[in-house]
Design a protein around this nucleic acid. Structure first.
Lengths: 164, 164
DNA sequence: CTTCCATTGACAACCAGTTTCCAATGATGG
DNA sequence: CCATCATTGGAAACTGGTTGTCAATGGAAG
């Protein structure tokens, strides 16, 4: 590698590195979802519902369905669908919203909270295993890189979130 | 329970970093898919079909459906579904497989290859934009981190891919 | 040659998400 | 007050993936 030659064959060497990173993100996403599903399956949960419980639990304050969707980065309707199923399961509860008659505020029921805590404990074990292989500095660096990509991909597109 | 805890609130500091990273992977995956869709929509493609064309194009040699699925990290049936649609669209072609009467080998048609090249060019522009913000060393580092996670999550689970 | 088992394609059911439409509600300006 | 418009929930159709089942094929052992 000692030739000082900025652009040998590949027009953009950095672009190839970014492409590789993107492919790893796709693959890891799939593996993580699969792993998450089998992690919380014993609790009668799925990755999707677990994430939903997390969004409500971590908010600290009761949220409306659109707020939850916003927090999770999914559409309002997608969040509502999971939410309705969690309601049927008795894991979340809708309380009247003084500011909106039609749009209730959602909170975890005691069972929902207990289940979330159990799922969290299961994940914690997995996370510790991963952390043993990945120094936290390295994890933070990777997070920062992904964050940069997120920001770049998200902001330049003006017509992404307006629902029309 | 009053063990002198060296771990007040956070049991494992590194685990939290890993968790943050995982959440970024989920979010970035969603944004990338969305972005990819709008990138290749003018070509009449979707992210999924684009990825499928890529898997075939990059293999260099004709592949069977299960081989394509394996290369993409999806199930045999999932790959087959897209494959059949690409066949109908005339973007891939099934040639007889001398080794398997039922399992043809798939190759890109000239239109499929042309379309893939166009999609690739569109992505290249996007990748260059991202590469401007992300030094290739940083991208490689992040890729390595994700690779480590993939390896750890993939291998310990013996019952993941055996279809039973 | 035959039997048995693994691989493969086709199909159906399902999960999780999206888009698109509609009806009901809330807020705002006349 | 009332007309209008944005927000919200509900339902349906669609995409892309999964699992499960079945029949056909191929290979290997008897």
């Amino acid at each position: 590698m000692n030739r000082r030659d900025p652009i040998p064959t590949t027009p953009e060497p950095g672009a190839a590195a970014v492409t590789q990173l993107v492919l790893r993100v796709f693959r890891l996403n799939g593996v993580l979802l699969h792993r998450g599903d089998q992690l919380v399956a014993p609790l009668g949960l799925t990755s999707a519902r677990w994430q939903m419980l997390g969004a409500i639990a971590l908010a600290g304050t009761p949220l409306t369905a659109p707020q939850i969707a916003e927090a999770m980065g999914v559409t309002r309707q997608g969040a509502q669908k999971q939410l309705n199923m969690l309601l049927e399961q008795g894991l979340v509860e809708a309380r009247p919203n003084p500011a909106h008659r039609r749009s209730p505020l959602y909170v975890l029921t005691p069972q929902g909270l207990a289940l979330y805590r159990q799922a969290d404990a299961l994940w914690a074990a997995q996370a510790v295993e991963l952390a043993a292989l990945i120094p936290s500095a390295q994890a933070h660096a990777a997070t920062g890189t992904l964050e940069t990509m997120l920001h770049e991909l998200h902001t330049p597109n003006l017509s992404s979130k307006v629902e029309s």
